[in-house]
């Protein structure tokens, strides 16, 4: 996360070498802080308090209904020594992250590239492709997914053309997670729109020049589109990964909040939710949340550190 501050900053400081310290602070820092003011108010007023509270609660036995008692690190100790469900749910979430994020991003980028061409009826296609994302957490999704991935579902109807008799994908432990991964990929609308917005910012004259030089489509993609798109790729990768780690709703609606069959769709946050609101162990759930935060934080910090080698900014 520190990568940003390293590269720029020189010009503004030079200019302010003359007057007193306070004047210098005013000139250098004030505009930044003024623009940041709404966020700072929100951060200190609304956000940080509950965050610190949850950190505190992770060291208590808070049961939602009575006052919390301090229990030291025992929540964390239990998590790492005596909780098979912690490991199982972490594994489910990891598989989800590893497969859903790249697939979703690749799909979103491919469709965005396709939709960025001048073609008749494109606004319509764009809207259609965004439709699954509009449905959000609708009850209809659970019903629909069952219709597609149950034994008598559409997928098996299709497979039967080739003489394959498929199982009930959505409710068989080996496959159920995959139907949720497909659901996540199917709702690829948001990264697609962001990619589109990024593609629109690439100056067209660069393509024209390249095209006149006889560069192939693929070369243009590799030499122009991808480098200029890296800030957006970077953003989508970071955000989608964080979201995937925190993913809750798809598993909740598909499994009715149970994480079944046989905990095969027990996502980390679903387990956390069960602990907090199902079993009245908010203290333990808070500890689970902070372990997740540490994990995602490490991942993000690592991504930012490596980003200066591959993300191309204009500044």
């Amino acid at each position: 996360m520190t990568a940003r501050s390293l590269e720029s900053g020189a010009p503004a400081r030079e200019r302010a070498a003359s007057p007193s310290l306070w004047a210098r602070i005013w000139q250098n820092d004030a505009p930044g802080y003024l623009f940041l003011l709404p966020w700072l108010i929100g951060f200190f007023g609304l956000t940080i308090g509950p965050i610190i509270s949850s950190l505190y609660l992770s060291f208590t036995d808070f049961d939602l209904l009575t006052d919390p008692n301090w229990v030291g690190a025992s929540n964390y100790v239990r998590m790492f020594t005596n909780d098979p469900k912690f490991l199982a749910s972490m594994r489910v979430t990891m598989v989800f992250v590893i497969f859903s994020v790249p697939l979703k991003l690749a799909f979103a980028l491919a469709v965005a590239m396709l939709l960025n061409r001048g073609m008749r009826g494109l606004p319509l296609y764009r809207a259609l492709f965004y439709l699954p994302s509009l449905l959000g957490a609708s009850v209809a999704i659970a019903i629909l997914w069952r219709q597609i991935f149950a034994r008598e579902g559409l997928v098996n109807d299709f497979l039967s053309i080739f003489g394959i008799v498929g199982p009930s994908w959505i409710s068989t432990p080996q496959y159920s997670l995959w139907t949720i991964i497909i659901l996540a990929v199917w709702q690829f609308g948001s990264p697609m729109i962001i990619f589109l917005a990024g593609l629109r910012q690439i100056p067209q004259d660069m393509y024209e020049a390249a095209s006149l030089d006889g560069a192939s489509k693929w070369r243009q993609f590799v030499k122009i589109t991808l480098p200029l798109l890296t800030p957006v790729v970077f953003f989508n990768a970071i955000i989608q990964t964080i979201e995937a780690f925190k993913s809750f709703t798809p598993a909740f609606i598909i499994s009715g909040g149970t994480g079944n069959p046989i905990n095969s769709t027990l996502f980390y946050t679903l387990y956390l939710y069960q602990e907090a609101f199902g079993f009245f162990r908010m203290g333990y759930a808070s500890a689970l949340a902070w372990v997740l935060l540490a994990l995602v934080g490490l991942f993000t910090a690592f991504s930012f550190l490596t980003s200066k080698y591959w993300v191309h900014y204009d500044d």
Partner: peptide, 9 residues
């Protein structure tokens, strides 16, 4: 602030 699951805050 993006990384903490909302369930606990």
């Amino acid at each position: 602030t993006l990384m903490l699951p909302y369930q606990v805050t």
